[in-house]
């Protein structure tokens, strides 16, 4: 996602939190930062895992999914280069409740949980950036609770595509229909029909696991209001340059 960063921090990694940390805190954290590849399908953690690292993506899309005992899953949050992966560890919770997986390949930086917790305890800039991220996550999850109850598959699919492309800073997404149906908690056949409709109307182009958003404005009209509500809150919080049309 596009975000504002202080000009003097131009050389920092392209992650909102890293780019906006105060100098002293960045100096402390950067010692333990390691750049890593985050390929598609990379599992940050599964339920009941202990996460040794937190991650700061600089590209790609991270999906957090809730799972049922019967093996159904549904996406509850999307994180890109505006956020951090592993917030529950920062809240002192060692056990992960969800499945966290790289949905669209990218790169990022990782830091040991212990170093990040230490920074958290300083109650300074890092803590405030994490607070902001948590609040945005809560907004996203709460909106999904409403959206999953009230809105149809087509609007949810449009919402998801817009959100993912915004986090990924690209109009193109590489993902399978299997992924899509898992994220939306809907049957694959239903998702295929809906993606077909969006394609027929010229909003997206879909072939061989690549989705290209062709008409963003029209896709926004197809999406439920959840997209606008969440997206405009993100933009306000991150001082993004362009606002939602």
């Amino acid at each position: 996602m596009q975000f504002r960063r202080p000009p003097q921090n131009a050389s920092r990694p392209d992650n909102y939190i890293l780019a906006n940390l105060p100098d002293t805190e960045y100096a402390l954290l950067s010692r333990s930062l390691l750049r890593v590849d985050l390929p598609q399908g990379f599992q940050f953690a599964g339920p009941a895992d202990v996460m040794p690292f937190v991650y700061f993506p600089i590209s790609g899309v991270v999906s957090t999914d809730a799972l049922t005992e019967a093996g159904e899953s549904i996406e509850i949050g999307v994180t890109g280069n505006e956020g951090i992966v592993g917030t529950s560890s920062l809240l002192g919770q060692t056990e992960i409740m969800h499945s966290i997986v790289m949905q669209v390949a990218g790169q990022g930086y990782r830091a040991p949980v212990t170093a990040s917790q230490e920074l958290m305890r300083r109650c300074g800039g890092f803590t405030e950036l994490v607070y902001q991220h948590i609040t945005l996550q809560m907004l996203q999850m709460g909106q999904s609770a409403l959206c999953n109850r009230l809105h149809d598959v087509k609007s949810r699919l449009a919402r998801w595509l817009l959100t993912a492309s915004e986090r990924n800073n690209s109009e193109q997404l590489t993902l399978t229909q299997e992924f899509l149906s898992q994220m939306l908690g809907s049957r694959r056949s239903t998702v295929t029909v809906m993606a077909g409709e969006l394609q027929r109307d010229g909003l997206i182009e879909y072939s061989r696991g690549k989705i290209l958003i062709k008409d963003r404005e029209a896709l926004q009209s197809s999406a439920c209001e959840c997209y606008r509500i969440v997206s405009s809150a993100y933009r306000r919080a991150l001082h993004a340059e362009r606002d939602v049309a």
Binding site: A66, L67, G92, Q93, I134, M138, N148, G185
Partner: peptide, 25 residues
């Protein structure tokens, strides 16, 4: 106070996430 709030915040997040799933399935 911070510890207590963080623990409670975690409960809120777990519940919210579960609601997103629950309302769908």
């Amino acid at each position: 106070l911070m510890d207590n709030l963080f623990t409670y915040l975690h409960l809120c997040m777990v519940t919210t996430a579960q609601s997103a799933l629950c309302n769908r399935v």
